[in-house]
Simulated scan of single mutants.
Amino acid sequence: MKNDNIIRLKNYARKLKQDLFVLYLSYKDNRTPWYAKAVAICVVAYAFSPVDLIPDFIPILGYLDDLILIPLGISLAIKLIPTYIIEENRFMAEELKKNEKPKNWFVGILFILIWISLGVWIGKMIIDFTS
């Protein structure tokens, strides 16, 4: 029973990873509607970002994005993109997946700047509060 759940979870994770590559290709496709592209770009950029909005070292919350936000985003984007585009991109995604996973350093840097800004803001509040 426990092994079945682990196998099912591994298969689900593998499918999600495959769907990320499908979304990556689909948002570059001119036939994809603009609203589906917007969702796909956000999901792909976040998933491929080397830095999480909520760092993994934060207990419980650190893994919420990986366990909830990314799968929900993938599901929503897949539903918004026409089926024929998804199916055409599945084959190309398999080839892309064999190569190195793309990194999105722009989003990573953006999240680092958000955390630095938050730290500066909290530090300023503490200094103002103690003064």
Results as ranks from 00 to 15, higher is better:
A47V: 06
L96N: 08
G62F: 03
L72Q: 03
K98N: 12
K37T: 00
G62S: 09
A38V: 00
A47D: 08
R8G: 09
V51N: 07
V43F: 08
W121I: 10
L25H: 13
R14Y: 13
I78K: 14
V51L: 09
I126F: 07
L16P: 01
L113I: 15
A45K: 13
I122C: 05
I116S: 06
A40C: 09
P59C: 12
W115A: 01
A77N: 06
A40P: 06
N99R: 15
L25E: 09
P50V: 10
F106D: 11
N89W: 09
I112S: 07
R8K: 15
D56C: 01
I122L: 14
V43D: 03
I114M: 01
D4I: 10
I58D: 08
F48H: 05
D29I: 06
N5A: 15
I85K: 03
K15N: 14
D19T: 05
V107T: 13
W105H: 05
Y63E: 08
N30T: 08
G108T: 07
Y24D: 11
G62W: 02
P71A: 05
V43Y: 07
I122M: 15
L113R: 05
P82D: 00
A93Q: 05
V107G: 02
K124R: 15
A93N: 01
M125K: 12
S131N: 13
I127Y: 15
Y63Q: 11
V44P: 06
Y63R: 12
A77W: 04
L16N: 15
I74C: 05
A38Q: 00
L80D: 01
M1T: 14
F48N: 09
L61Q: 03
I74G: 03
Q18T: 12
G119F: 09
A77L: 04
A38Y: 00
D52T: 02
N99W: 09
G123T: 11
D66Q: 04
L16H: 10
Y84S: 07
K10A: 11
K2P: 07
A36W: 00
P71Q: 02
V120L: 14
M1Y: 09
V43K: 09
I54V: 13
T83R: 12
V107A: 06
Y84W: 10
A93L: 01
L61W: 09
L67K: 06
A38P: 00
I122D: 05
G119N: 02
P59L: 11
F57V: 01
N11L: 15
I109Q: 03
D19A: 08
D19P: 10
I114H: 02
E88L: 03
I70N: 04
E100N: 11
N30R: 10
N3V: 03
N5T: 07
Y63C: 07
P82N: 04
L72R: 07
D19Y: 08
A93R: 05
Y24I: 10
N30D: 09
K79E: 03
E94R: 10
L53W: 04
I58T: 08
A13F: 07
G73Y: 05
A93V: 01
L80E: 03
A13H: 03
N30W: 09
R8P: 03
K17P: 04
F111L: 05
I60W: 10
L16T: 04
I6L: 12
R14D: 14
